[in-house]
Design a protein around this nucleic acid. Sequence first.
DNA 1: ACCTGAACACCGTTCAAGT
DNA 2: ACCTGAACACCGTTCAAGT
Lengths: 174, 174
Amino acid sequence: MALSREQVVVGAYSVLQEQGLGGLSMRRVAQHLGVQPGALYYHVASKQELLAEIASRILADPPTTDPRQAARDLRAALLRARDGAEVVSFVHAFRPDALAALQTLPALFTDLPPREAGWAARALVHYVLGFVAEEQNRAELVRLGVLPDDAPDADEAFEFGIGAITAGSYLDPR
Amino acid sequence: MALSREQVVVGAYSVLQEQGLGGLSMRRVAQHLGVQPGALYYHVASKQELLAEIASRILADPPTTDPRQAARDLRAALLRARDGAEVVSFVHAFRPDALAALQTLPALFTDLPPREAGWAARALVHYVLGFVAEEQNRAELVRLGVLPDDAPDADEAFEFGIGAITAGSYLDPR
DNA sequence: ACCTGAACACCGTTCAAGT
DNA sequence: ACCTGAACACCGTTCAAGT
């Protein structure tokens, strides 16, 4: 039963859940699948490509509602995967167009001219990725006991930020 | 003439300029200084500590004016160093308090209550770091000829973002 | 077509031993 | 006090050779 690209991606995803992004190596994925490291390269061109595949699965479907709700959904999707924000940020950095789910964001800023809608979408994405990366990092440090578990106002803080970024860009609140 | 911590940091900084963050290894810093890799660890506890030192030098002095100008100054400081935004983001991720220059930002939101000032400052920092990271990444890809040199409206796009984030948080525009 | 074995060119970090 | 030499435990990637 030959290995498949799908199995490689799923295997990598589960290594990510168990070890975090820092522990996600090609060699560990191979070990997890009971195969030699070189075998992975028959199904996947590089670690970057593998990460891009994982990132788009983390993001899942493109947003369809208003920008604020899209930001909330994006945050929720990132929080579902261990180090989700870090993985997506990494991919977003060197291949922004690889993430289809982020491509439709500008169209949600219906009352802005195209140029500005693009800028607004980028601002929102940068904010969400940065916010959740910090959030997941803190959670990890709390898990390791190196940080006290304060700041339960993450939801409120997040909402403040998206409120600010989208303020004035479209008029119906809530 | 014994090596000093200062020389290690300066050496690392110049390797960063020449090779970028991806090429910044302890071994290359050692080579650049004409010393064995192990010698560095007499002056610096880890690569992370070294990066934290570099990051605070990239940021230089804390901002003193209004949030919008602080954001512009922050962007300018990041652009001065190769991969500046990536370096600072990395350090900010696992040691946010190590960057003194970002600590004073909340105080600039003079018309917001403390909690909200903190949120606004974080939103602004996430936006600036994300924006400049993308900007420097694009510039690198253009330099390598893999991307066409379009999008000269970076300043305008940046200004749009900080305008949005700080809109309503204090009342005098400009 | 698909995988193994083995190598290549790297990493960060530690630490006895030298001076 | 400060550095070397050498090792440890890793990396991503390639590629002849096997099946």
